[in-house]
Design a binder for these strands. Sequence first.
DNA 1: CTAAAAGCTGACGTCGACGTCAGAGGCAAG
DNA 2: CTTGCCTCTGACGTCGACGTCAGCTTTTAG
Lengths: 124, 124
Amino acid sequence: MMRIGELATRAGVSVRALRYYEEQGLLTSERSASGQRLYPEGAVFRVGTIQELYAAGLSSKSIRTMLPCVDNGQVTPELLAWFSAEREKLDRRIGDLVGTRDRLDAIIAASTESWQTGVPCRSE
Amino acid sequence: MMRIGELATRAGVSVRALRYYEEQGLLTSERSASGQRLYPEGAVFRVGTIQELYAAGLSSKSIRTMLPCVDNGQVTPELLAWFSAEREKLDRRIGDLVGTRDRLDAIIAASTESWQTGVPCRSE
DNA sequence: CTAAAAGCTGACGTCGACGTCAGAGGCAAG
DNA sequence: CTTGCCTCTGACGTCGACGTCAGCTTTTAG
C-alpha cells in the first residue's frame, strides 16, 4: 500500500490530479487510521488508464461511465451502445485531425515549393 | 458586403464567435458609417478555415500565427519550422486517439464475446 | 525531540472559446 | 413615428481539469 505522493510519482501525475480523480469517482482509496489515502499496486495501472482516456479527449463523466467495465467486466447493452457512440465520435475527431494534418502538409509542401518557385502556397 | 448576422448564418457560427475571432486577430472587417461590421463574400470561406483549425484542436494563437500564410503565401523558415512542430503535435494526438479507439474496440469486441461466453472483457 | 516533508480539507484562481446580459444606437416596414 | 429586429461595446458567467494557497495534522529523518 503506497501513499498519494508515491502513486503520483509513479503514475506521472500530480497529487492534486489524484484527489480530483477520486472526487470524480474514477479512483478509490483506502484510508489509514489517520485518514491518509492508501493505494494498492494496481492503482498505478488504473491511473495510466485514466490518463490515456483523458488524453483521448474523453470527459470525466464519460470515463466514469466506462470504467466499471474495466473493473468487473460487466457490460449492459446500453453501455455497449454508448461505447459505439463514443467510438463514432472518436472516429470523427480522428478524421478532423487527419484532415487538418493533411492540409498542414499541403501548406508545408506548397510553401517549400514556393520557396523555390516564388508561387504563393495558397490563394482563395 | 454582408453584415455580421448574415455571415454568422452562412458560416454556421454565432455572432459572438465572429466578434471573438476579430478580437483575436483572426478575422477583419470594414465598418459602415454607423460602425457596423461589413464582410466580403470571402469571409465565409475564411471563417470555415478558422473553424476547421479550431476543430483540429489548435489555439487562437496558433491559428493567428499560421493564417498570414493563407493570406499572402509568404512563409519564413521559422514559420515553416513551427508548422512542422505543430504537425508533430497533431501526429501524436492522432496516435493517442487511434490508440484509445483501438482499446475501445477491444473492449467492445471482448464484451460482446463475454456476452456469449461469460468471460469478463478485461481484468487487471 | 524537533524540524522538515508529506497529507488533509476546503476554497478560490486559471485558461480558452465562447454564452449571455445590459444599455444604447441603427434601420426597414407599416 | 413607432415597433421590432439587428448591431454595438463592455463586462461578467461557464465549464473542465486541474494549480495554488491557507491552515492544520501526520509521518519521517536526523
